[in-house]
């Protein structure tokens, strides 16, 4: 009789029972809906044992590779160690080795993890300080190109974490590191595919990582990156991206200012509006959307209607939702608001 280990307890499963049915029979709260392998509500993670293909059907490659599966679709033959999908986070320390102002309210933090930290460009991490406050920050670094982690922190009025990072956190200081999280990454294959990237605010950070990862991986298709902000100074990585465009003929940077202020050679309007006006047919394109949830949601729908396959549209809103529902990891306050 297989034993299922979850949340520190073990539950026996009958020989013909799915993981979901067994857990529910033992009154373990597990979210579920269709029980037909379609809705993906019962997503869990297997640690150690590889799930069968049937239990990973419909999941994205990044989730499959990391052992996630649908609990309603796996009748286990042997014991399983399980983790909840929203709590599968690595924990370590990271030292601040660089802090630099990119714009009036955006700074770049460079972090040195205390032990090797395996991630992909475009994923994000949770940073936790000693009092338990946790916030999420996307990685702008690329593991193949640099050993240190880079995140962009936007300062919010009254933001507990961002204010602390701007005013108090100094080089040599330490934070705890949780992750990596998220599935918004570049995957090798189809190197001639056109890529559209749209980011607002510090949603640019993961796009910088993904674009450099794609170029370093030999991507040959055109890559168009649209970065939008209300003000010109919010387009804080213009020179870096212009240099990247000068270095790679297939990389194109488009700065977009949505407010009335100076343009500095950039375009006027919302980044997504400008991107879709210039690329109205996205059939066979790969798309990356990062930034405000409303922009990401609207743009994802638009990209789909303009012909992109959903599997080719990469964004983070699901992880946001999961984070907000995540257990507090031992801390009393761990509500995680992205990029605060």
């Amino acid at each position: 009789m297989p034993l299922l280990e979850l949340d520190g307890a073990r539950y026996p499963a009958d020989a013909s029972e799915t993981v979901l049915d067994a857990l529910l029979r033992h009154a373990v709260p597990v979210p579920y809906s269709c029980r037909k392998g379609v809705c993906q509500a019962c997503l869990l993670k297997s640690e150690g044992s590889a799930p069968p293909a049937q239990a990973q059907r419909g999941l994205r490659a990044g989730l499959r590779e990391r052992g996630f599966f649908l609990a309603c679709q796996w009748v286990p033959r042997g014991d399983l160690r399980l983790a909840r999908a929203d709590n599968a986070q690595f924990l370590g320390n990271a030292m601040v080795v660089g802090k630099e102002l990119l714009a009036a309210n955006v700074c770049r933090l460079t972090l040195q993890p205390s032990r090797p930290f395996d991630y992909r460009a475009g994923q994000f991490v949770n940073l936790r300080r000693a009092d338990g406050t946790v916030r999420s920050y996307s990685l702008a670094s690329v593991p193949a190109l640099e050993r240190r982690l880079e995140v962009h922190v936007k300062r919010y009025a009254g933001g507990a974490m961002s204010g602390w990072i701007f005013d108090s956190l100094e080089c040599g200081g330490e934070v705890e590191l949780l992750g990596p999280l998220g599935d918004c990454v570049y995957r090798a294959g189809r190197p001639d595919q056109s890529i559209l990237m749209i980011g607002t605010g510090t949603g640019l950070a993961p796009l910088i990582g993904i674009a450099r990862d794609a170029l370093d991986s030999g991507h040959r298709g055109e890559i168009h990156l649209y970065h939008g902000d209300a003000e010109l100074q919010g387009l804080y990585a213009r020179s870096q991206l212009q240099a990247l465009a000068a270095e790679h003929r297939n990389f194109h940077f488009h700065g977009c200012v949505s407010g009335d202020g100076p343009l500095g050679g950039c375009l006027r309007g919302r980044a997504s509006d400008i991107a879709f006006a210039e690329h109205p047919d996205l059939t066979d394109w790969r798309v990356f959307l990062c930034g405000s949830p409303s922009m990401v949601h609207e743009a994802k729908k638009a990209c789909y209607l303009f012909g992109a396959a959903l599997a080719d549209i990469h964004a983070d809103p699901f992880e946001l939702k999961d984070l907000r529902h995540a257990p507090a990891h031992g801390a009393t306050e761990a509500r995680t608001d992205r990029r605060d």
Binding site: Q40, H297, L310
Partner: peptide, 8 residues
């Protein structure tokens, strides 16, 4: 927001 779920 869950377009993948809707498509499923």
């Amino acid at each position: 927001v869950d377009m993948d779920g809707q498509r499923a």
